[in-house]
């Protein structure tokens, strides 16, 4: 009987090893381990055996049964794995096919420049002030030390609506509007971004509508050296750590002393190239110490308060930053242009 069991075991093992599918294994299980299978048969015939042999045979029969069962299980796992592998193999896809596109819009480069600059100044304790685009002659000119017949008005050819109303030519009127609200008490620390308008024919470098950012800091004991300090911080954060600044004397009716701010050219590192017209420097903004007349007209005592103001052209900053060569691109809204700024 023991021999018979050994025989059955060997037979089953061979069959399990040869089994190529889960179905075959199922059959093998039924055949050998089922209620009507040969092992059960052997066990049934155990009654005929002498009592002392019974445990032996019983034990062996159980061992055979377990061995076969575990082998089947093992084989089953293996076949399942193979089947799964085969199935997955079949399911493989071409991952180089394009993914389902997600719509991605973009921020206008001018907005992007404005927000970047706002954030730099917000970090230095400035707030953002805004004002109307249709201004009065008073705020746009007179309060900025530009009386009606001032020759410097020629610097800005104006779209007048009436004698007293106009499209603002600069964001500077926001300065005086904000100072008035402070009722003669400092500090005033604002930057003012916005659209401005001048009677220029639109071409590659001129636009009848463009954007400016104005900045103003008024308090007791504000010095021109502070203006240099703030600019240095700003330039290094906006243009990069290794950029240098220089101030050149200039003239604006609402500041005295006045200065242009130049930044060392990023293209050539200051050696001189086409971008900086061989000078090594790029003019980026106009600035100066707020003119006493402006302070006075806005309700600040120029004996007590000083301040500095600056104004920059947003398009110019965008052109420098992104290498845009024609100002009209900013206003044409060609999506081939706009979509290049998806990453900003």
């Amino acid at each position: 009987m023991l021999d018979r069991l050994q025989e059955l075991k060997d037979e089953a093992i061979t069959k399990v090893k040869e089994a190529g599918s889960l179905n075959e294994l199922r059959d093998i299980r039924v055949t050998y381990l089922g209620k009507k299978g040969p092992i059960t048969e052997v066990l049934k015939g155990m009654g005929k055996l002498p009592a002392e042999e019974r445990p032996k045979v019983g034990q062996m029969a159980n061992e055979v049964r377990e061995a076969v069962a575990s082998l089947i299980a093992e084989r089953e796992t293996r076949l399942e794995e193979e089947a799964l592998t085969a199935k997955l193999q079949k399911e493989s896809i071409d991952i180089t096919l394009p993914g389902r596109p997600v719509n991605k819009g973009s921020r206008h480069p001018l907005t992007s420049v404005i927000e970047t600059i706002e954030d730099i100044f917000i970090g230095m304790g400035f707030t953002v002030a805004e004002g109307p685009e249709v201004e009065t002659d008073y705020y746009n000119f007179e309060s900025l030390n530009l009386p009606k017949d001032h020759p410097a008005r020629d610097m800005q050819d104006t779209f007048f609506i009436t004698n007293e109303l106009l499209l603002r030519t600069q964001t500077s009127p926001v300065q005086t509007r904000t100072m008035e609200k402070h009722e003669g008490r400092g500090p005033v620390k604002i930057i003012c971004p916005g659209k401005v308008y001048r009677r220029d024919e639109d071409d590659a470098t001129h636009s009848h509508q463009f954007m400016q950012i104005e900045g103003l800091l008024v308090d007791e004991n504000i010095r021109m050296s502070d203006l240099k300090g703030i600019f240095e911080q700003f330039v290094k954060r906006y243009f990069g750590e290794n950029r240098e600044i220089r101030l050149r004397p200039s003239y604006f009716p609402f500041t005295e002393p006045s200065a242009e701010l130049d930044v060392s050219c990023a293209i050539c590192g200051g050696k001189g190239c086409r971008t900086c017209k061989q000078t090594g420097w790029i003019e980026v903004l106009g600035s100066g110490m707020v003119h006493p007349n402006v302070l006075r007209m806005s309700g600040f005592d120029p004996e007590k308060y000083t301040g500095f103001a600056f104004g920059m052209g947003v398009e110019r900053f965008a052109m420098l930053k992104y290498g845009v060569d024609d100002i009209r691109h900013f206003y044409t809204n060609d999506t081939r242009f706009l979509s290049q700024f998806t990453r900003v």
Binding site: E118, F121, I122, G123, M124, G125, F126, T127, V128, G186, P187, K189, L217, D219, N221, I222, R223, M224, S225, D226, K228, G229, I230, E232, Q233, L247
Partner: peptide, 16 residues
């Protein structure tokens, strides 16, 4: 002209 930072009171910057 030297480079300095203003001696003004600290103001909280920010957006409305």
């Amino acid at each position: 002209i030297p480079t300095t930072l203003p001696n003004t009171a600290t103001t909280p910057g920010g957006l409305t």
